[in-house]
Design a protein around this nucleic acid. Structure first.
Lengths: 164, 164
DNA sequence: ATACTGCGTTCCCTTTCGGAACCTGTCAAT
DNA sequence: ATTGACAGGTTCCGAAAGGGAACGCAGTAT
């Protein structure tokens, strides 16, 4: 299977990764969340090669995650801003951060932790179901095929019956 | 910067991606969460080439995300199971699924959605701060450097001051 | 003896990536 | 007028990773 075929998959994990599954993409988005907007600055911070950065920014713009905005004319210069779709990725990054801090040891123990911006108090993220308020775990929540809404007749086949 | 240098970074996003940031890794883990344990089955479902799958499984095992368990001798055969560290990745996958379903359109609209395993009722994930119970958003929660705990003197520098 | 299963490994060729240099406009200083 | 800096790419090359398919190999079934 080729990488670009992922976008065609029914599985949302695959579709999501077709946009943000690239080696650099999440790091670019992390910088965006940290207020970095300019090509030069990203390249400097990431240590990514320029043409790869250029390519990723184009793809993210095409995917609707980033938005290019002109901030000067002559010569035309743009900065990259997160769209609503891009901002919606924040929980993905936060859960990843939380997992990494707990499961991937940092050299010398120094790291970046999550804090409340106002109070500075450390934050412990938890994923809950909005409707029930209960925590989401592999034991309680799984995936289910859903057909295109007009063909509910053949639905309700679960691909997710195993437990690890 | 080389990909393998990521593990040395202080940023937990980078450290996390050094483990699960590969093109295929998250898809492998998705299959693990769906109860797939065997090499053959993964290769068949993913359409990944055999040597890449072999390599990724090794790396995931080294990272402590998967655990190889022998299920027969003569010839020795193993299956791959999620460790506790691996299971802890579930929220990352769930938030990614939620984002993809909302932001990456599926072909023909068919997709996989999150449901409560017992009731079958659709689940809407939300990330909250355990201590306050409030939703975590980019506006309210950010990252902060934390030193190795014995050198708190030079701490409290925030790399995250911009807003997108 | 032969075929099959399960899990890799090896080979070859294409794609992607890292690194560095170069290009394009514009402005500011010399 | 020339030089240099700035910002954001693009181009080129050699190295690395990836896709595809075949092969290996231990044991088991026919």
């Amino acid at each position: 299977m080729r990488w670009n075929d992922l976008r065609e998959e029914a599985c949302p994990v695959a579709r999501g990764l077709s946009v943000v599954g690239d080696r650099w993409t999440m790091l670019i988005l992390r910088d965006c969340f940290q207020g970095i907007r300019r090509f030069e600055k990203m390249q400097e911070r990431l240590g990514i090669t320029r043409h790869v950065l250029s390519d990723r920014l184009k793809k993210l713009e095409n995917a609707g995650v980033l938005h290019r905005e002109q901030y000067q004319q002559r010569p035309p210069r743009h900065e990259y801003l997160l769209t609503e779709s891009g901002k919606a990725l924040y929980p993905v990054i936060v859960t990843l951060v939380d997992w990494a801090n707990a499961n991937v040891p940092a050299r010398a123990g120094s790291s970046v932790t999550l804090v409340n911006r106002e109070t500075g108090i450390p934050v412990t993220p938890m994923l809950v179901d909005t409707t029930t308020g209960r925590e989401i775990t592999h034991a309680t929540v799984g995936g289910r095929y859903s057909e295109p809404s007009d063909a509910e007749t053949s639905a309700a086949r679960s691909p997710d019956d195993g437990s690890a």
